Computed example of a mutant assay.
Amino acid sequence: MPNSQSIHIPVTTSPTLFPILGTQKPFLKWAGGKSQMINDLLKFAPNDFDKYIEPFIGGGALYFSLNHSNCIISDLNEELVITYKQVKENVHEILGILSTYQNSETFFYQIRSLEAKKLSEVERAARLIYLNKTCFNGLYRVNKKGEFNVPYGKRTGLFYNSETLLRASEYLQNTEIYHLDYKETLKRFAAKGDFIFLDPPYQPVGKYSDFKRYTKEFFYEKDQIELANLFQELTYKGCYVMLTNSDHPFILDLYKDFHIEIIETKRLISSNPNTRTGKDIIVLGGL
């Protein structure tokens, strides 16, 4: 395994499809988002790769920072995938809908109570962006029925940024977007020379852990083991693989044969200030 100095890449040398846009910020705030870890993640990105694959896309902080010309993103969260596709294809319609929305508690609960599957896809995208930007701490959480159940965040002011959404739409144009399980995504598309970033639901690290599954399904220890096995298979295939997770003994043991970096982080989603610190790990395979 090369040391961190030998694989460091200055951010300015990342492959560039959109030289005018440069690095794009995520348009959603997502539980477990990687914005605060971007410098650490970019430090360990490969110098050159064929395509970028991120099958737990979430807010897409690393995806938006890499600025690569050949990307595949996917997620098991149907609402999230629909939103990415609609931002790519119908961003002006989304902005038109958002311009009619109000940042108020009454309106928030009216929108939250809507049944997503009865809406058009562009309406579903606008609804998710609105709820994400006006709910408590930007946390996407659903109950066992798959219904969004986060309360109103009581923040005032504009809840969306037109420029961010327009730039994200342009950024997404040459990206393939799929509603797939991560295993199916990697089975279909992963090939030798690809860079794959895996950001699964984290292994809980304590009673007050803020790592929550953002679909109605859960990620158990058996799922972490299955993912670790696939991580190894991908490295054997010749992929460059980077994975993030919690600094948990179980996870550290799963990846003990790979290079691991431990990063101090803040848990911005947590409602308890005393639990807003922690450690993330970055696991490197084939790098």
Rank of each mutant, 00 (worst) to 15 (best):
R188I: 11
K133E: 09
Y220D: 12
D199E: 11
T215E: 04
E217M: 09
F218A: 08
R155G: 06
Y178Q: 09
R188E: 07
Y208E: 11
F148S: 04
D194A: 04
T185A: 11
F189E: 11
H179Q: 11
T185H: 06
L131V: 10
G193L: 11
L139D: 01
N143F: 06
A190L: 10
K216R: 15
L139H: 03
I177E: 05
P200V: 01
I196W: 07
D194G: 03
D199H: 04
T215S: 14
K207L: 01
L131R: 12
P201A: 08
R167H: 13
D223C: 01
E147D: 14
F211L: 00
K222E: 15
P151C: 04
K222M: 08
L186D: 03
A125F: 12
I129C: 03
T164D: 13
H179N: 15
R167F: 06
V142W: 11
E184G: 01
K183T: 14
Y130Q: 06
F197T: 02
K222L: 13
G157C: 08
E123I: 08
L180V: 03
D210V: 02
Y220I: 08
A168C: 14
F195E: 03
A190W: 09
L131P: 10
A190Q: 04
I129V: 13
F218Q: 12
F197C: 04
K207T: 02
A168F: 12
T175H: 09
P201N: 09
V205R: 00
F148Q: 03
Q203V: 02
E147V: 15
G206T: 03
P201Y: 01
L186H: 06
F159M: 07
F197I: 04
T175K: 07
Q203W: 00
P201M: 06
S120H: 12
P151K: 08
T215Y: 09
P204V: 00
K216C: 02
A191S: 15
Q224W: 04
F219T: 03
K216N: 14
I225H: 00
K192C: 12
H179R: 05
A126M: 12
R167I: 13
K154W: 14
V142R: 10
E217N: 14
L128H: 06
L198C: 10
E123R: 15
P201D: 03
S169A: 15
Y178P: 05
F136N: 05
Y178G: 02
Y202K: 00
R213G: 13
G206F: 04
L166V: 14
R155A: 08
I225E: 13
E221K: 15
I196A: 08
V205C: 05
A190T: 05
Y152V: 08
R141M: 08
D181V: 12
Q224P: 05
F218W: 11
Y202R: 00
T134E: 09
I225W: 00
